[in-house]
């Protein structure tokens, strides 16, 4: 159908200096991707679904206290630990740099969940249920996952497919490899972010705002971190998972002493 796929390499940049922890991305993701409602029971059983979550860390003691936020979602690792351990190729790497989860193939061994250092994979312990009226708001482009399978952030691949179709249609029925640009497609969390802390784009697109960050971090690996010109770093870079996500954070010159998690 669309032949331009291998021409892209999608990536995201998360600017932690801009994130104010508003959770708009969490809500947008929940609505876009047909995630079950995280009710009280889900949290009590510790089985909540958070394809993107805002991790919140407190620094310092009251009254001199500061909150830090890290939005954590699937890092779409180039060297993903979850991929080689799946016996049925339910998770694999697409040519465009996405870590893809195929719900139909999944048998639910949960090995990938154990092997994800970022803890962004979720198992459907129960069959998902919505209140009756809310079933009408389910996104028709996204599968409702059944019990017994693993799911995770897809970078809203349904939006990518829709964008490809639109580009194709605009080109008068013929394929146009040039026109699917970064701006044609963005995941719902990026769209919802009010401070533009989340930026999405094609790592190979010269005009993409994320490209300089990727170039910089790729050029200076973890052993030459201090040579980086931007604020970029990757989560758990020492594990060599090579995520397609880059985090930006200015090193705090005057950190607040003493910290606490939660």
């Amino acid at each position: 159908m669309v032949t331009s796929r291998a021409k892209h390499k999608w990536g995201m940049v998360v600017d932690l200096d801009r994130c104010n922890g508003c959770q708009a991305c969490v809500v947008a993701c929940q609505a876009e991707n047909n995630l079950p409602i995280n009710d009280k029971n889900a949290f009590l059983q510790s089985r909540a679904y958070e394809w993107i979550r805002i991790e919140r860390y407190w620094e310092g003691e009251y009254p001199n206290v500061r909150a830090r936020f890290i939005p954590v979602l699937c890092q779409h690792c180039e060297n993903a630990p979850c991929e080689p351990v799946c016996p049925v190729f339910a998770t694999y790497h697409s040519a465009e740099g996405l870590n893809v989860q195929l719900y139909n193939r999944c048998v639910g061994t949960r090995y990938c969940i154990n092997n994800c250092p970022y803890q962004v994979r979720f198992f459907n312990y129960w069959h998902p249920n919505w209140p009756e009226r809310l079933e009408n708001q389910l996104n028709p482009d996204v599968t409702v996952r059944t019990r017994g399978i693993t799911e995770k952030c897809t970078f809203c691949i349904q939006r990518l497919r829709r964008a490809e179709l639109q580009v194709e249609r605009r080109g008068g029925g013929t394929l146009n490899n040039e026109t699917l640009k970064s701006g044609n497609y963005m995941p719902s969390c990026v769209q919802a972010c009010p401070t533009n802390a989340l930026m999405f784009g094609d790592q190979q697109d010269e005009q993409s705002p994320i490209k300089p960050y990727f170039d910089d971090v790729n050029k200076h690996n973890i052993h030459h971190e201090h040579e980086r010109e931007t604020r970029g770093y990757r989560l758990l870079e020492e594990m060599n998972t090579k995520p397609n996500l880059i985090y930006l954070k200015k090193v705090d010159k005057n950190p607040v002493k003493g910290g606490q998690h939660g």
Binding site: S46, R47, G108, Q119, F123, Y125, W126, R147, G148
Partner: peptide, 10 residues
């Protein structure tokens, strides 16, 4: 009913 009946979680 699904593996929810076990004690497994995240």
């Amino acid at each position: 009913r699904g593996l929810g009946v076990t004690g497994l979680n995240r």
